[in-house]
Amino acid sequence: MSMRKAYSESLTGYLFLTPLLLIIVVFSLYPVVYSLFLSLHRIILSLPSLGETFVGIDNFVAFFTDPVGRNSLMVTLVFVGVSTALEICLGIMIALIIHESFRCRSVVRAAILVPWAIPTVIASQMWRFAFNDQYGIANYLVYGTNVAHYDAWLASPVSALAVIILADVWKTSSFAALIILAGLQTIPDELYEASKIDGAGAFQRFFKITLPLLKPAILVALLFRTMDAFRVFDLVFVMTQGGPGDATNVLQFYGYRKLFAEGMVGYGSAVSIVVFLLVFSVSIIYLKFIGTGILEKKEARA
């Protein structure tokens, strides 16, 4: 009887899971495998006579020896490193502020969520106009009415990348802050009371209690932000189209251009597999640090 019941429970369970599994298998898993397959072939849409020749890892070799490809990888790594580092630091500061209790705290929390909720394309247009060489507010704030000094921020390699990082930090620091806030809420107040009695200052309390106990939350925020930063596309598409030169030509934009604008299906797929492997290996490293606490907990009650 109980055997039969368990059997029918798993049968119904899998019936319930079928739509999900179907969508994920057809539109996520199969596409990744298909991308891998395409990346091992030479397929150029403008040269159909070439057909689809198997070329092994030639496309990957080409990517890593092509200066544009290598530059794209470097730009992506700089973007990911700088933007996530800034987002985590700002996220900790914002979390510390909105964790305190004060009047109208929920209004402040809602205000901080606004950048997160704005579509990235709109935030991109906003920052693009703010850093416009003539009408932009950035020049006005930096140089005042001294029009002769006005900079074309998005036309110089270093400042263009910096502006894109700024736009990303503005948009997503609040997300990091919310994850870290959830971590702050798990730290018992007694710890602070006790250390206060022991005469520890605010800085000591932060570095001796808050920061070590926040480590898991910070790692989770880092994981989510890093994965997302590797996928940056909207900001670059709207603000710079990868330029000037290739200064902001991040991998997802480079792959998009190869695949869809130039029809280099094999090479473009290789770029997309590189992004995939980067994101995957980074996530696995983080998950090793975080541990699978979430899963263990679910396991325990089943």
């Binding site: 590797f230 792959g255 695949l259 997309s272 597999i273 995939f276």
Partner: peptide, 9 residues
Amino acid sequence: FPQISIAGP
């Protein structure tokens, strides 16, 4: 999964 890795297929 990054979007680009499934976009082509």
